[in-house]
Design a protein around this nucleic acid. Structure first.
Lengths: 206, 206
DNA sequence: ACTGAGAACTGGACGGTCCAGTACTATGTT
DNA sequence: AACATAGTACTGGACCGTCCAGTTCTCAGT
C-alpha cells in the first residue's frame, strides 16, 4: 500500500483549506494567507502546488463539481422502472431536491454565478455537469418511457427540464437570495417535489 | 417649472455612472474613481452625495429593483380576463419571459446573488420585489379565476410559482451561467413560455 | 542501518498594486 | 459672501506573489 508522501499530504491539506475558505468567502473574499494558515502550511508551499489564486480556485471548484456530478448520476440511474411511474418519479424528485439543496451546493452555485465573468469556463463546466448532465440522463429515461407508452414525452429533453425545474425552482430560487442557504425543512422540500411531480404527471402522464 | 439645480444634476450623473459601472463590474470590481470619472465629477463630490461605496451600491441597486417591480406589476395587471384563459396566459407568459430575460435584469440578478453575504438586505429586497411580488399578484388572479371556475388552483400561491418557473426557469438558469446574458432569441423564449403554459394548463386548467 | 544529497517546507519580510476614503487648495456658481 | 466642485495628492490597509535563509523530510546508495 502506497503511503502518502509529505508533498501529497500538504497538497491535500491545501485543497481542503482552500475549499473551506473559498466556499465561505467567495473568490475575492478569500485570501491566500488565510488558506495557508488554515492548511497549516507556509504560503510558499501553496504557491509550489498552485501557480496562482485563479488556478487554485478553478481546481477546487471543478473538483467539487465533479463530485456533485457523480452523486447526481447515481440518483438518476437509481430511478426504478416499475409500473408505478408516478411513485417512481415522486421518489426521484424527492431525492433530487434534497440532494441539490444541500447548503454546500447552494453556496457553490452562488459563488459560480457571482464569478461568471472572471471564470466563464468554471461556469460552463458547472452548467454542463450539474443541470446539463441531469437533463440529458433524464431525457434519455423519458425517451424510453415514452416509446414504451408509459409517459407521453415526445420531446424528452424539454420534459426533463420541466421535471427538474418543477421540482427544484421554487426552493432553489429562494435559496439564491437567502443568507441561510437552505431555508426549508426536508418535509417542505419533499412537498415541493410532490407538487412538482403532480403537475408534471398531469402534462406528461399517460 | 422647477429647474434641476447643479447639485441635483451632479447627483443624477453619479447615479447613472454608478449604475453603469456596478452593472458592468459588480461591487468588488467597481472602483469609486471609475464612477467619478464616468460621471465627470470629482471623487469628493461623489462622497458628498453618498457616504460610502456600500451605500452608493445599495441605492443604485434598490432603485433598479423598484423600476423592475413597476414594470412587472404593469405586465401582470394587464392580464386580460377573457374566456380564452389559455390564450391569455400564453400572452402573459411571453411578456414575462421577454421582460425578465433582459440582459440588464439578468446581470442585476447575478450581481445580487454574488453579493448575498455582503448585502443581505438588498437580496431580500430583490426577492420580495422581483419574484415575491409577482407570486402574490399572480396568486391573487389565480384565486379569482379559481372561484369563478375558470382554473383549478386551490393553492393559488403554489400555482403562481409553478406558472412563473415553468415559463422562466429553463432560460433563466442557463443565463445565470453564461457570459452572454441572454443566449436566446425572442422566438426561443416564446417557445419556452408556450410550452410552460401548456404544462401549466394540463395541471391547473378548467 | 547509516549517510548524504536534494527536494520540500517554514517563517517572515517585502515590493508592487489596487483602492476606499480624506485633505487641501483653487476655482466656479448662486 | 457662502457654498459646491475640481483637481490632485495623500493615507491607510489589504493582499497577491516573490524571495531568501535556515530547517525538515525523503530516499537512493552503501
Amino acid at each position: 500500500m502506497e503511503i502518502e508522501g509529505r508533498s501529497a499530504r500538504k497538497r491535500r491539506a491545501i485543497v481542503e483549506a482552500a475549499r473551506t475558505v473559498f466556499l465561505r468567502s467567495g473568490y475575492a473574499g478569500a485570501s491566500m494567507d488565510e488558506v495557508a494558515a488554515l492548511a497549516e502550511v507556509s504560503k510558499q508551499t501553496v504557491y509550489k502546488h498552485f501557480a496562482d489564486k485563479e488556478r487554485l480556485f478553478t481546481e477546487i471548484i471543478v473538483g467539487d463539481i465533479k463530485t456533485t456530478e457523480e452523486r447526481s448520476d447515481e440518483i438518476i440511474e437509481s430511478l426504478p422502472a416499475s409500473d408505478d411511474i408516478d411513485g417512481d418519479l415522486r421518489a426521484l424528485g424527492r431525492q433530487i431536491v434534497v440532494n441539490v439543496m444541500q447548503p454546500r451546493l447552494v453556496r457553490l452555485r452562488r459563488i459560480i454565478i457571482g464569478e461568471v465573468d472572471r471564470f466563464p469556463d468554471v461556469a460552463r463546466t458547472w452548467f454542463d455537469s450539474a443541470p446539463g448532465r441531469s437533463y440529458a440522463m433524464l431525457a434519455d429515461r423519458f425517451g424510453t418511457l415514452h416509446s414504451r407508452g408509459l409517459l407521453h414525452t415526445p420531446d424528452p429533453m424539454l420534459a426533463a427540464q420541466h421535471f427538474l425545474w418543477l421540482v427544484l425552482s421554487i426552493p432553489m430560487n429562494k435559496a439564491m437570495f437567502e443568507v441561510d442557504e437552505n431555508p426549508f425543512t426536508p418535509e417542505e422540500l419533499e412537498r415541493f417535489a410532490d407538487e412538482g411531480v403532480r403537475v408534471f404527471m398531469a402534462a406528461y402522464g399517460r
